[in-house]
Design a protein around this nucleic acid. Structure first.
Length: 424
RNA sequence: GUGGGUGUAGCUCAGUUGGUUAGAGCGCCAGGUUGUGGCCCUGGAGGUCAAGGGUUCAAUUCCCUUCACUCACCCCA
């Protein structure tokens, strides 16, 4: 074994994996484009002060910091960091580019980094696929984000998933009503675990944290639907977002109001959403929400915004586990063998003809027995093989073999190309 | 940051109650078949048994430490 290692939680993506990734990314990008989102890229690094203070205490700890100009190791000087998500960089871009006309819809598919401890479906370097709408108030923009996630998951072949929907203001009102306005985040984090721990576990946890039994009882009552003062607007907004999302084609069965959904990031202010697969367990595959205050932190002028992020790595882990990825791991459709040196010109002519016709084609790069060349094509998963030996050259033809069924056809090169273009 | 688990061939794993040449399947390479892939047969390459230290006549095996990987918690995509 080579005596070299990768940084923890980071991976090489070999061709076999890259082909799957590119297909999945392509499918997601296509849905983003279909919904009218325009592409954006931002640098891997941001200045540290751009990132800190946006994600909450837990999040800030996970920011991957970079030494000042790559130097200053002894002093531990840090003035830059790898981006933690794609939302904060977008907010920075908006603040720096007032010429962009609003509402601005952007998509962004790039890696982000977190100094987290890796586990299943969690890495230190991973791709997020984001869409955000900047400059539109709560309502249709939020519904669009939900619809995009819904449609993207369908495009990838997922059908059993639930988009959970809640409102940050509702949670804030809840904290006030329970008499814990100053401990909103703590309360939110606790009730977020209702799914796993149930009321018994969460109740015990809250009591251990110093909440009073009265407060816990009040909490259950409110979660059960007791009227919550100060939450009227939040509920009205959710009603509207939900109705609009359904209007955009989101399946009612896949959209669920869920008062225990919290979302830890500090910058959310309005509706928040998260997607979980109903039959899987790698955490959420998407998360997002409205963050009307974030851009103002950079520009001093509040601009409303809402966005959502799809977790590419988790989707890929699940798709692989479930055999949802296409079997083929090569894009090459035609493999041209080289019979011998005398026949090489015919092989060159053949591979060029396929390429010019837009068909991905390879030519054997190493000499060897014909059998070896066929075997190489087979291992690569290429469907078509072209053989141009002395007999074929003399007849002005090539032999085209379909490795799927082993059928040979001798025909002029142009006809072989036409046949492959037509899909056999 | 907290707590478990696992490190033997490229991969998945046997095995060694401490003993001389560490095994299998798959994969890889070559040949059987110098104009033909998959199936079959034959042969071959490939291991400091994660690293370092300790106990012992002897350690891949027992003990300690470190490292790596992994699962869960926290949090999150």
């Amino acid at each position: 074994m080579a005596n070299v290692f990768l940084p923890k939680g980071m991976r090489d993506l070999l061709p076999q994996q890259m082909i799957h990734r590119q297909r999945v990314i392509g499918a997601i990008q296509q849905v983003f484009t279909r919904h009218g989102f325009e592409p954006l890229e931002t640098p891997a690094m941001e200045r540290i002060e751009t990132l800190t203070g946006k994600y909450g205490d837990e999040g800030d700890k996970l920011i991957f910091k970079v030494l000042s100009r790559g130097e200053g190791g002894k002093e531990g000087l840090v003035d830059q960091a790898l981006r933690y998500d794609l939302t904060v960089p977008l907010a920075r871009v908006i603040a720096m580019n007032p010429q962009l006309s609003l509402p601005f819809k952007r998509s962004q598919i790039q890696p982000v980094w977190r100094a987290d401890r890796p586990q299943k479906g969690r890495f230190r370097e991973f791709y997020q696929c984001d869409v955000d709408v900047v400059g539109a108030p709560c309502g249709l923009a939020d519904a669009e984000c939900i619809a995009v996630v819904h449609d993207a998951l369908l495009a990838l072949g997922f059908t059993d998933f639930t988009i959970r929907l809640n409102h940050r203001a509702w949670l804030r009102a809840l904290a006030v009503a329970v008499g814990a306005a100053d401990r909103e985040v703590e309360l939110i984090v606790a009730i977020d675990k209702l799914d796993k721990a149930g009321r018994e576990g969460v109740g015990r946890d809250l009591l251990a944290r110093g909440f009073l039994p009265d407060q816990v009882q009040r909490l259950w009552a409110l979660l059960d639907g007791a009227s919550l003062p100060g939450a009227e607007q939040a509920d009205a907004e959710l009603d509207r977002v939900e109705a609009l999302a359904l209007g955009l084609g989101v399946s009612p069965a896949r959209l669920r109001r869920d008062r225990s959904l919290a979302r830890g990031l500090d910058y959310y202010t309005g509706p928040v959403f998260e997607t979980v697969l109903t039959d899987g367990a790698v955490g959420s595959v998407s998360g997002g929400g409205r963050y009307d205050g974030l851009i103002g932190m950079f520009s001093g002028r509040d601009i409303p915004a809402v966005g959502v992020s799809l977790g590419l790595e988790r989707l890929l882990v699940l798709m692989e586990e479930r055999g949802m990825l296409a079997a083929s791991t090569t894009s090459t459709q035609v493999w041209v063998t080289v019979f011998d040196e005398a026949c090489e010109p015919a092989a060159l002519q053949a591979v060029t003809a396929f390429r010019q016709a837009g068909v991905p084609a390879e030519i054997s790069l190493t000499e060897g027995k014909l059998g070896k060349q066929l075997k190489a094509a087979d291992k690569r998963g290429v469907r078509w093989v072209v053989i141009a030996g002395p007999d074929e050259v003399a007849a002005g033809q090539v032999k085209l073999r379909d490795l799927r069924d082993g059928q040979d056809l001798a025909l002029p090169l142009a006809d072989a190309v036409a046949r492959v273009v037509a899909g056999g």
